[in-house]
């Protein structure tokens, strides 16, 4: 082995030693999220002043897809029932997590609906913005017109609650899908 190779080997060892002894930062090297893009504040919605969505905003270069999604085609369909609606919503959350390689969206119904209708990293509307299940306040509603309650158990588990035929949440006829 030549002298050059030998010296190179020694330098490599010293570099490894220096690396081991160098001070390290403890968890401050970077945040889990990429830098977020500044967005203009939204105008107040019909339900009064709205605050920020806790989900990361869509990247500025994410083209909001106009292509219709077929995932929500049968939501609130007369041919189905509340059980098929809940299963379909569950599948939409599964599809969302798979597509964005992340966790469920969080927040109130309106925040989550906003994400599922395109305010996400892909700019993809898992549910079309003009889906008849979405009311004027931007909330996703059950087949009786009452907004769903999305209970965030964990990043991968979303409990979905419908108020049921009595239109009243937290009563005996509520229909709930717990994953």
């Amino acid at each position: 082995m030549s002298r050059r190779l030998y010296l190179g080997f020694v330098v490599l060892v010293l570099a490894a030693v220096a690396w081991r002894l160098s001070p390290r930062s403890h968890g401050t090297a970077g945040l889990a999220r990429p830098p977020l893009v500044r967005m203009a504040p939204r105008a107040p919605g019909p339900a009064g002043p709205r605050h920020g969505n806790p989900n990361p905003p869509a990247p500025a270069d994410a083209a909001i897809a106009d292509a219709p999604s077929e995932l929500a085609n049968n939501l609130n369909s007369p041919a189905g029932d509340i059980h098929s609606d809940l299963r379909q919503l569950h599948e939409i959350f599964v599809a969302y997590r798979g597509a964005v390689h992340g966790d469920n969206p969080v927040g109130d119904n309106v925040d989550i609906t906003e994400v599922l209708t395109g305010r996400n990293a892909l700019g993809f509307a898992f549910i079309p913005k003009d889906h008849p299940a979405i009311n004027a306040d931007g909330e996703l509603c059950d087949r009786w017109g009452v907004p769903y309650f999305f209970h965030q158990l964990s990043g991968e588990e979303m409990e979905i609650r419908s108020a049921g035929p009595d239109h009243k949440m937290w009563t005996a006829d509520d229909e709930v899908l717990t994953p």
Binding site: A32, R33, L36, H51, G52, D103, N104, G107, Q152, S154
Partner: peptide, 28 residues
């Protein structure tokens, strides 16, 4: 928060995530 520039703990409002973040104190 409203402008979306803030780095927020992931999965705010999710039980399991917030329990772990409270107990780890390293939410990011």
């Amino acid at each position: 928060y409203n402008s979306g520039v803030a780095a927020l703990p992931p999965q705010l409002f999710s039980h399991a995530d917030q329990q772990v973040q409270w107990q780890s104190s390293i939410p990011d």
